[in-house]
């Protein structure tokens, strides 16, 4: 739903969203990259499994939670991208066997 106005060029890094390589620019947040993806959502809610996407981009709404490098429920708007980072969208509530 968003697009980047410039090409990050040689400093671009690759991160992985649900296993798919995606180009990102150092300095931007994981949430900013998620908002450029076709899917348009980053988690489904624990209560009704409805899809959610980043809303406030400043750390207060907690809608942008994703799994980053194995850690669940990380605020992606507060997390800068890093080369090789592995992001997983979160589905519903967490389970003990996950």
């Amino acid at each position: 739903m968003f697009r980047k106005l410039h090409d990050p060029g040689p400093q671009a890094v690759t991160i992985f969203i649900d296993g798919r390589p995606v180009v990102a620019e150092p300095g931007e947040s994981v949430a900013a990259v998620l908002l450029r993806q076709q899917e348009g959502w980053n988690r489904t809610t624990p209560v009704s499994q409805s899809p959610r996407a980043p809303y406030c981009m400043m750390g207060v709404c907690f809608e942008c939670l994703v799994e980053i490098d194995g850690q669940g429920s990380v605020q992606s708007c507060l997390t800068p991208v890093a080369a090789g980072m592995r992001i997983a969208r979160q589905q519903g509530r967490r389970s003990l066997s996950a």
Partner: peptide, 13 residues
């Protein structure tokens, strides 16, 4: 505000 942050930090519209 979120969109403005996206513009500032990610040059995204």
């Amino acid at each position: 505000g979120a969109a403005q942050i996206l513009l500032k930090t990610a040059d995204s519209v």
